[in-house]
Design a protein around this nucleic acid. Sequence first.
DNA 1: AGGTTGACGATGG
DNA 2: CCCATCGCCAACC
Length: 125
Amino acid sequence: MAKALQIPKNQSWRMKHKGENYFDMVYEVVKLIPRGRVTSYGAIANYLGLKSGARMVGYAMNASHANPEVPAHRVVNRNGVLTGKHHFENPDLMQKLLEEEGLTIEKDQILDFEKYFWDPSTHLL
DNA sequence: AGGTTGACGATGG
DNA sequence: CCCATCGCCAACC
């Protein structure tokens, strides 16, 4: 079973882990998002302590096509909007994947977003 | 080696 | 409320 990133509490979060870049750190967190739940770029950035991080997370997800193991469809923006849909093979694939996990999407927006929102800072340690 | 280009989000005018 | 700015990584010319 996957476990949360081991984050040294007394060290700067801005430091790269040995040989591990920010992108990889983001992927580790995304892999921990449960099926049927979603989180936001900002929430991941906040968990990782990246100061200007939401953007970093966006960059990371942009490159995540190389990692099939990363459930990229479970990451949306802070308003529950599927901003990354155009980066999937089919623009409708992201919505389809989320609907298969029980979510309802209307106009690229997740209904009851708060209900499905999964905050790594709350659920991981 | 340097410029361009992105799945974001807080802030301030 | 809408719009501009800023933060500052990595892949690809």
